[in-house]
């Protein structure tokens, strides 16, 4: 069954608040993890499958958030229309930026995406007239879905989880289609992909745009959920956190990104009490995972389990991909 993992995940997400009613931890941290999952799954399409690094992805998260914030507070747009505008803006920005930037490789691409992220952040801080500057924008109205105003932690949990499941489902579909195979081909061998008729520039651009759309989507929801946005939520550190989530779970695995996002969210919550140690642990974790388990925790562990399973059954273990 192609989507068995997805249905199990969806069931778990739906059951959690029922198992732990009125639990602040489940609904609030859960919603926060859900947003991170959308971001990580989107970035994984670009990093894990297409093999292109982005160290500026928080910028697209910010574009979605600020589009919703500005359009609803200053212009009184309905929230869904503002969300759509945010998606459009992020998509166009990514599309325009993708062509020149995705010709670059490795360190050059890292630098270019990083520079893009820094510039976007500077604009959020400096364009005070629009963004409210460093103080941010407050008073963002609740999300209004066809007359239903989303209010309260439990409702937000529901909305964000639905959005997250949609993102995971879209990602799973995409990866397991010819579009997804073309993307993975670009990562595997750009030469061969071209020779199979894959327009590699177009494939990379698509991955970049789609991952920007995921990020902007999460950004819009984030703005409404928090009712407040400020540049701090979209700086370089956030971009690095997103990369951490993807590699922590394991590149090129949608559920790897899901696990990475959930794990990092929980870790951050767990370290809230030891706030000063958060950086130390975050840094050590990044290094340790990349050195000892570069395929990521989720992917590494599932491979180990599979190997163990086949060893117990007595059949030949599949070689690691």
């Amino acid at each position: 069954m192609r989507l068995a993992g997805f249905y199990a995940f969806a069931a778990a997400v739906a059951l959690l608040p029922a198992l732990f009613p009125d639990n602040y931890f489940v609904v609030v941290i859960g919603a926060s993890a859900g947003l991170n999952v959308i971001l990580a799954v989107g970035l994984n399409l670009l990093m894990g499958y297409a093999g292109q690094i982005s160290l500026g992805h928080a910028a697209f998260f910010g574009v979605g958030a600020y589009a919703s914030a500005i359009l609803t507070t200053r212009f009184g747009w309905p929230s869904l229309l503002a969300l759509a505008a945010g998606l459009l803006a992020a998509g166009l920005l990514a599309w325009g930026f993708a062509r020149p930037i995705l010709r670059l490789r490795g360190h050059y691409l890292a630098m270019a995406t990083l520079g893009f992220g820094v510039i976007a952040h500077v604009v959020m801080v400096q364009a005070t007239h629009w963004t409210g500057g460093p103080d941010g924008l407050a008073g963002i109205p609740p999300l209004n879905v066809l007359g239903w105003r989303v209010e309260g932690d439990l409702q937000w949990y529901g909305v964000i989880m639905a959005a997250m499941l949609l993102a995971v489902w879209l990602s799973l579909n995409l990866v397991d289609s010819q579009v997804g195979r073309a993307l993975r081909a670009v990562h595997g061998s750009e030469f061969a992909a071209q020779m199979m008729g894959v327009d590699t520039a177009r494939a990379k651009t698509q991955a970049f745009v789609v991952s920007a759309l995921f990020a902007a989507f999460a950004g819009s929801l984030f703005a409404h959920q928090q009712a407040f946005v400020s540049p701090d939520s979209f700086n370089l550190a956030v971009s690095v956190e997103l990369v951490t989530m993807v590699v922590l779970g394991g590149l090129a695995s949608t559920f790897g990104a899901v696990c990475g996002a959930i794990a990092l969210t929980l870790l951050q919550q767990g370290l809230v009490v030891f706030e000063d140690y958060e950086m130390l642990v975050h840094g050590a974790l990044l290094m340790a995972v990349m050195i000892f388990m570069p395929q990521g925790l989720f992917v590494g562990l599932t491979q180990a389990v599979r190997r163990l399973g086949s060893a117990l059954v007595g059949s030949k273990p599949p070689a690691a991909a």
């Binding site: 010819q178 195979r181 073309a182 993975r184 081909a185 990562h187 595997g188 061998s189 199979m196 894959v198």
Partner: peptide, 17 residues
């Protein structure tokens, strides 16, 4: 120049692109 990140049939399916 195989796509080592895919299965055999997926490689060939890229060929059908």
């Amino acid at each position: 120049q195989l796509f080592f990140n895919m299965t055999v049939i997926e490689n060939v399916m890229v060929g059908c692109h």
